[in-house]
């Protein structure tokens, strides 16, 4: 009996949450566009969300690429196939690691910050105060952050993949002595713009929507107390990571399966 009640309650809560989040996003994004007011806000959020995540993305990408180069080499050299190091590094980065790791780092770096910021704005009544000043906080606070996340994450994923491939090149070619020409030419022969780069791009757009959306919704509905905000921040990171990994499987199955 209790079991069914639990199932029912959880289902209802999930539906309510998804519904609320959809309404929030709809109200934030639909309406008369006001580019003159929006642009400075968007620029500022691009700075906070994108620029400030750039360093961690570049460094992580470099290291992951180097590890891929090292691990890939030790495996491939046993088959005498170290020529295939280039495509191995490039394909794993472009198809999987670029979009996925970027999304996970983004959730930890920018997503949690978004949740905490909006949660604190709620706690200090800044959101209510906007409402009372007849300014819609959804359009003023939520919308620019959403667009900034949506624009930044695919760009960050490209940076991640590019620098990761360069990291693989440093380890594979400069250090372990794979042939320079073979590394790039075999890579070029097997990486396809539309199939690999664009599908990775689509993945990271999907992840961007999901992570930013979760972060904004969790912040917007956070309980305005210190434990409430800290719980919301944690939930942002946990839910967006799970959502990213789950969706990644679905998207991979659809694209490459």
């Amino acid at each position: 009996m209790k079991f069914f009640i639990d199932i029912g309650r959880n289902t209802l809560n999930t539906v309510r949450g998804v519904g609320g989040a959809s309404i929030m996003l709809f109200q934030a994004l639909v309406g008369k566009p006001q580019p003159r007011k929006m642009f400075p806000l968007l620029l500022r959020q691009l700075y906070v969300v994108g620029v400030q995540s750039m360093l961690i993305i570049l460094i992580s990408g470099l290291f992951i690429g180097m590890v891929l180069g090292l691990q890939g080499y030790t495996i491939l050299v046993d088959f005498g196939a170290e020529q295939a190091l280039g495509p191995m590094v490039a394909l794993s980065l472009l198809r999987e690691l670029g979009p996925v790791v970027t999304a996970l780092l983004f959730a930890g770096r920018a997503g949690s910050a978004l949740t905490a910021e909006i949660g604190l704005m709620r706690a200090t009544e800044q959101l209510s105060s906007l409402e009372m000043m007849a300014v819609d906080p959804l359009r003023r606070v939520v919308a620019p952050r959403f667009w900034a996340g949506l624009i930044s994450m695919p760009l960050l994923a490209f940076m991640f993949s590019a620098i990761g491939i360069y990291g693989g090149f440093i380890v594979g070619v400069q250090w372990l002595g794979v042939d320079d020409g073979a590394f790039w030419s075999v890579m070029q022969a097997s990486v396809e713009w539309r199939h690999d780069v664009m599908n990775g791009f689509i993945k990271s757009v999907v992840f961007a929507i999901v992570v930013t959306w979760i972060a904004l919704y969790k912040g917007y509905t956070a309980e305005p107390t210190s434990p409430g905000i800290s719980a919301a921040t944690t939930q942002t990171v946990v839910y967006s990571s799970l959502a990213v990994l789950g969706l990644d499987f679905v998207l991979t199955a659809l694209m490459f399966g």
Partner: peptide
Amino acid sequence: RKRMSMLFQSGAL
């Protein structure tokens, strides 16, 4: 709401 305004407890600056 443009015709009313509210001073919040925390100030909400």
